[in-house]
Write a protein that binds this DNA or RNA. Sequence first.
DNA 1: TTTTGAGTTGTTCGA
DNA 2: GTCGAACAACTCAAA
Length: 486
Amino acid sequence: MTQSSAVILWFRNDLRLHDNPALTAAIETGQPIIAVYILEEFAGNPWPMGGASKWWLVEALKSLQQDLLFYHLPLILRKGDPLTILKDLAQQSNAGRVFWTRRYDPFLIEQDKIIKNTLNELGIRADSYKGALLHEPWAIRNSQGQPFRVFTPYWKAIRHLPIAEECPKPTSMTPYQGSLSSDDLNAWPLQAHWAEKMQKHWTFGEKAVQQRWKDFCRNNLKDYPNMRDRPDFAATSKLSPYLHWGQISPRQIWHDIHKIAVDHPELENGKESFLRELAWREFNHHLLFYSPGLPSKAWHQEFDAIKWQNDETILKIWQQGKTGYPLIDAGMKELWQTGWMHNRVRMIVASFLVKNLQISWVQGERWFWDTLVDGDLAQNAANWQWVAGCGADAAPYFRVFNPVLQARKFDPDGSYVRRWLPQLGKLPKEYIFEPYGAPPDILKKAGIELGKNYPYPIVDLKQSRASALDLYRTIVSARSTTDKNM
DNA sequence: TTTTGAGTTGTTCGA
DNA sequence: GTCGAACAACTCAAA
């Protein structure tokens, strides 16, 4: 191989310039850079990108292209098999090295291994970097040398581990001067009409997320431990999609929040609470790494024996937010309108699907995968399993969220419900979470006709809860029998 | 090695 | 209205 004349920077889920170790390493070679994003098409991917993700990706790529203009670095767009494309680019440019940030979905780990080995065999050195997580999923083990299965010990284990400094945003880059073809972003099959309505709920790109993060620290961090549970306030960071796409690095968050807390002791509780959430993100990747079947197989495998209701009609009613329970319906509307749902509401709608409706958590996981802009294999799978009771959770199976009680507790004025279900706007607070219990004259005055402009409840809460507990009890008692036989 | 205590996010019932 | 117990039972880490 002749002297190489360029290096390839393969952008994936690290669509940022600040604290991007792969980018920094590419620049440090001193060689001209070719930046590429590949819309990967491969057979056998069990989780092809969901609709909301595709929509977010377009916006993320647009702003990355924009940010790279400052460095006169074009972002090459290619669609197809990544290995073929990388080989092709290397051949055309005589590039000798490829840089990328690691990703952790089981299917992608396998794919990346093949790509790395093949490139290396061809004399093209491929180097991968840690940029999406604070800790590699395989780097954390308990005192027995085993992976963690409970969150709190995991958190204790990583809480005080040192984290390397951030890589600063580059001051300059040397773009590759040769001509390389690029696809037109608008021609990629990523457009989903239903997703366009989400536009007005988000700001895009790295600059936007930096601003959002700054605002969150200034305005919301102090009260985060309590307020994060309130869907009626904008009290959470909403960083999830940006973190998923790597538009902000977890390492920056970690360092920023520590620095801020030094001068602001009143933020101590907020800091711990927020870092704990960040650690859940890490823990979920840890779980997925050691249980690659997590997205489809129960982590406690005996739960796969549950006979779920396989009812498309009921599933659709849940998806469309027509269950007759306002908090559930408001959450599903928020998801559909914005591509995002408040964390507490996610737990409540999930519990409702799995427990009250007895539909498999995998069905819910699929719907979230398609509709969430922060759709992430590890987070989605681990959290659905957690709610379903088959995941990494010490809590017992009988935790069933009651959507009415939860609403009273966390949306006390009903303003979250009113925001997403304007047809209930005139209903007084006393009945806003259970319109089916309101006296006829109150309903009439509020302009509500049950079964017409707001549905009757799809199930009875008390009865469906009891039925769920019965169902789960069969699994749990089967478990103890099996254990005794072992 | 054995024991002990704790484990993200809940609900209901009865005192 | 408020409070504690019960809902069952297992895994894991630390003492």
